[in-house]
Amino acid sequence: MNDDPPVQATILTAPPDFTTFMRNYQNMVYSTAVRLIGNETQAEDIAQEVFIKAHAHFDNLATSPTAGGWLKTVATNLSINHLQRYRKRWSFFSDLTRRDDDGGEKEVEFAAPDTFFGGVDTTERREWIERALRQLPEHQRVPLVLYHFEEMAYGEIARKLRVSLSKVKTDILRGREALAQILMRSGTLHESFER
């Protein structure tokens, strides 16, 4: 039984404000984690960890205009740490084959952008893209998400993921191609995709 005043004060005063704070940011934090990790259950665990950390720093965060950025950075770092830990643990067991791509740029055959999603409504299109993103292999999805969603530069991504700059560029390029191919296939197989 603990009846220390500071602890009681935390229980009584923090939750209402913190709840509002959390409701404001939980979708953003969860989106960051789920797009990086590609697994909803693990992303929820990461989001929980982020908000527990936020609670520990809530005195500063509550009034900070950069709270959103702080949460996003923590969510990104925790997600990457999680992936790296997971990769180390299972790298022997899995066959996460990484093509050592040449990195050369070439033109890719796809439908023209304006006809890519012809006749598909916005909600459906977004669902396809989210699903296509999840289907990407981790080594393509993570740098792609960091580049396009988190707006990190190639060099920053390379440092964060501890890989070479050329690998980051190649993985992002291949990720885009793979994403476009998955989307194109989904578009072609529209009827069967829906079932």
Partner: peptide, 18 residues
């Protein structure tokens, strides 16, 4: 296409868990 995506909705259980 990616930037056009809205934020994913966090599971309802998240708040209670936190």
């Amino acid at each position: 296409q990616l930037r056009d995506l809205p934020a994913r909705t966090a599971p309802q259980s998240l708040e209670a868990r936190v």
